[in-house]
Amino acid sequence: MRPPSEPRLFVVREPEPEDDAALARAAAHGDPGAAGAIWDRYSGLLRGVLRRSLGAQDVEDHLQEVFLRFFKKPAELRDPGALRCFLIGVAMRVAGSELRRRRVRRILSLSPSGELHGPATPPLDAEARQAVVRLYAILDRLDADSRLLFTLRHVEALELTELAEVFGVSLATLKRRLSRVSDRVLLAARRDAALVEYLSRGALAERGRP
């Protein structure tokens, strides 16, 4: 006869799902439902941030790391209403660490190819795939913070005020940094005739859409 199974209770209701502050407070109080609720709300956003910053490799591991870092000390979030920005900030730090680690590995030639992990491109047509590779080759030349700033603003379309909070700088400082990074990327992109031509065709098609 098998030993009796222990009943296992899973919380199925979120604590105030519309309210970030309530979720953050629930996490700080150790509410067992908080992890699932915060995951449901932010895993998609953070997965996108990580995937577009780092490529597809190990993205779920990095995502777990983001949430574990937050839940290790949820009380560190002083303004519970700023949960979204706080989590993006954690994701940024996780991605930054990973980018720096990869760079060191490249410098030390620890990876077999001596290259940074490029984007594991999905099934795209050849031109699109090439454009992705060219864009990430440009981003690879940026330092980790600059790359993340560019990604969060121009790929994830985060608001400037959010970014200022995430990076812990004033709005004016953020704008200056973003302008410098954007100019660097644009300069490199404009030098890549094939990339510019691909982007131009896409942009023209967008203009022509009803």
Partner: peptide, 9 residues
């Protein structure tokens, strides 16, 4: 450029 990255995955 942002669109290229968004479509990447």
């Amino acid at each position: 450029l942002g669109t290229v990255a968004r479509r990447a995955w």
